[in-house]
């Protein structure tokens, strides 16, 4: 019998990866194109990155997006962690099922519906749409992802550690801060990264909830592309891909480190 992957396997993997990443590769390569025409290769150049720096509207949109992503990811991480703690620590409290259902609903809710309902809410309340409304909308979108990640970590958490801390004279809040938080920190960081990336690339909800002067990067790119693809768009997209890829890789590394630590704890538990 042959060892190693068969020709069929290799082809299937290559085709699958090409299907996923070829468009992105093309985009990245063409962002370094010297030619003015998007589809014709004219040699390597950083020209469009320089042009991008001149494009204040695009840079402002990018800055806007990063601020919204950072703010909403932070808010979502705090709220998502708290709801994960509530779900794991307060047992079968009244309305637990309803609460978990409501926390996880945005996970499966079509973004169009979330966006539209938020728009209706903001209009009904007479809130001016802009930076804050997008940040709030993104918080509601990404909070459930943080909850999922932190919850899965807390489920495997040995409550004995918290009891031991309290037994040794540590009050409950300090126990949470000095024992629980450091141990679930990788999961929280992973949750923040994911929330950040989700906020950064969201177009649908942002376009429903944004207002004048608060154009996010995806909205900006989308409107530029409708007028014809400019090579600067390739450049900004490449930068976005770099940021999101970085965030995703760091968050998965953090999650993996957490998993390794948990394994170690489990081994510790098994050894005792």
């Amino acid at each position: 019998m042959r060892r190693g992957p068969s020709l069929f396997n290799v082809t299937a993997v290559a085709l699958g990866l090409a299907f996923l990443y070829l468009p992105i590769a093309v985009l990245v390569i063409y962002s370094f194109n010297a030619s003015r025409l998007v589809t014709i290769w004219g040699g390597w150049s950083l020209h469009w990155y320089r042009a991008l720096m001149q494009d204040t509207a695009m840079v402002q949109a990018a800055w806007q997006s990063l601020r919204i992503a950072a703010l909403s990811a932070t808010a979502a991480t705090v709220l998502g962690t708290l709801s994960a703690v509530a779900l794991t620590r307060y047992g079968a409290f009244r309305g637990r099922l309803l609460f978990s259902g409501m926390v996880y609903a945005p996970l499966v809710m079509p973004e169009v519906i979330t966006g539209l309902s938020l728009l209706l809410l903001f209009v009904a309340l007479g809130i001016d749409r802009g930076f804050w409304t997008v940040a709030a909308a993104h918080t509601t979108l990404t909070m459930c992802f943080v909850t999922v990640i932190v919850h899965s970590r807390l489920v495997g958490f040995d409550r004995g550690l918290e009891e031991a801390a309290m037994d040794l004279g540590c009050p409950p809040l300090r126990t949470f801060l000095t024992i629980t938080l450091p141990l679930i920190a990788p999961a929280i960081a992973a949750g923040w990264m994911l929330a950040f990336a989700l906020s950064l690339d969201d177009l649908v909800i942002a376009s429903f909830t944004t207002g004048p002067g608060a154009t996010t990067l995806p909205i900006r790119i989308y409107s530029e592309v409708r007028l014809g693809v400019k090579p600067e768009v390739n450049a900004i997209c490449t930068i976005m891909i770099a940021i999101v890829a970085f965030g995703t890789i760091v968050s998965s590394l953090l999650a993996k480190r957490g998993a390794v630590r948990r394994e170690r704890e489990a081994a510790l538990g098994a050894a005792v």
Partner: peptide, 20 residues
């Protein structure tokens, strides 16, 4: 009296040592 104010200390079956 809450656990953190009691004059007793416990050794846990799982040991519950702080891994960090």
């Amino acid at each position: 009296v809450p656990p953190h104010k009691r004059p007793v200390n416990m050794m846990f079956q799982s040991y519950a040592l702080f891994p960090h």
